[in-house]
């Protein structure tokens, strides 16, 4: 089975610099890590390969620095890694990102199964997976909690949709976004790290894309645009709870909450 795992490098901390002009995130300076949810997707892919055979390719759109993340993917067990990187891709929203990834997948000759994390920790939208499935015209299942079966033509999954636990069979090719806790991602192995040291990470740019229409990529291809950024207003009435120690502060808060019938 040919499996592609979509991954993303995200800021390591909770703060990131925003370009006031475009509203896009500046990624160059900040420390980064692999989006933690993507590790569950990669682990799922590797386990499916171990079960039925095939290849696992890690795919990302981002700056060339994503190579570091891809090396880690190799050390976890990915066979191949591809970065779609071009200044023309900068400022992509959901639609442009999904389109670019679909182009990358076309470039790789398609696949049987695409795995994504449930969402990223920076954008937090959880939209790119389903949007990518729509671009490829394939079915998807989001928030998958368990893979219940894999065959040559289909995959069965269990999703916990808040009040319903649903088990479905999807015909391949299809896309699945996996929930946290579907498995415990393995740590990068030292042996694989050494063995894959010389294995290159492929980088493709705009000129490699099958579709040579610039208006479909990056900021140009993004129907949403940021009008302005602003700091939210602080809470209307703020009260400092007095007290020189914890007990006094607790007493002062308790008195207020009781008087206001909040507790």
């Amino acid at each position: 089975m040919k499996i592609i795992v979509c991954m993303k490098q995200v800021p390591a901390g909770t703060t990131a610099e925003i370009d006031p002009e475009t509203g896009a995130m500046k990624r160059s300076s900040a420390a980064t890590r692999t989006n933690p949810y993507d590790l569950f997707a990669l682990e799922t892919a590797i386990r499916i390969r171990e079960q039925v055979g095939g290849t696992v390719t890690a795919l990302t759109m981002g700056p060339a620095q994503a190579e570091e993340m891809m090396k880690d993917a190799y050390a976890m067990g990915a066979d191949d890694a591809v970065i779609l990187s071009d200044r023309k891709f900068a400022g992509s929203d959901v639609l442009a990102t999904a389109f670019t990834l679909s182009q990358g997948i076309a470039l790789l000759g398609g696949c049987d199964l695409i795995l994504c994390g449930r969402q990223t920790t920076d954008g937090d939208t959880a939209q790119v997976g389903p949007a990518l499935a729509e671009y490829l015209g394939i079915p998807h299942a989001a928030w998958v909690a368990e893979i219940t079966g894999v065959s040559e033509t289909s995959i069965s999954v269990r999703q916990d949709l808040v009040s319903v636990s649903q088990e479905s069979e999807l015909l391949l090719p299809c896309l699945i976004t996996v929930d946290k806790d579907i498995n415990v991602p393995r740590l990068p192995s030292y042996r694989l790290k050494k063995a894959t040291e010389a294995r290159p990470v492929k980088i493709f740019s705009y000129k490699d894309m099958p579709e040579q229409d610039m208006s479909k990529f990056g900021l140009l291809g993004s129907p949403t645009n940021v009008v302005e950024m602003f700091t939210p207003k602080p809470a209307e009435k703020q009260v400092e709870i007095p007290g020189s120690n914890g007990s006094e502060q607790a007493q002062a808060l308790f008195d207020i909450l009781t008087a206001k019938k909040i507790i």
Binding site: P11, G13, T14, T15, A16, E17, I18, G23, M25, D122, G123, D124, P223, T224, N225, V226, V227, E228, M229, F230, T231, P232
Partner: peptide, 16 residues
């Protein structure tokens, strides 16, 4: 809310 920092973003979909 926008990514990181204490920032909100106003988003428009003006051309579609």
């Amino acid at each position: 809310p926008a990514f990181g920092g204490n920032i909100m973003a106003q988003i428009a979909i003006s051309h579609s």
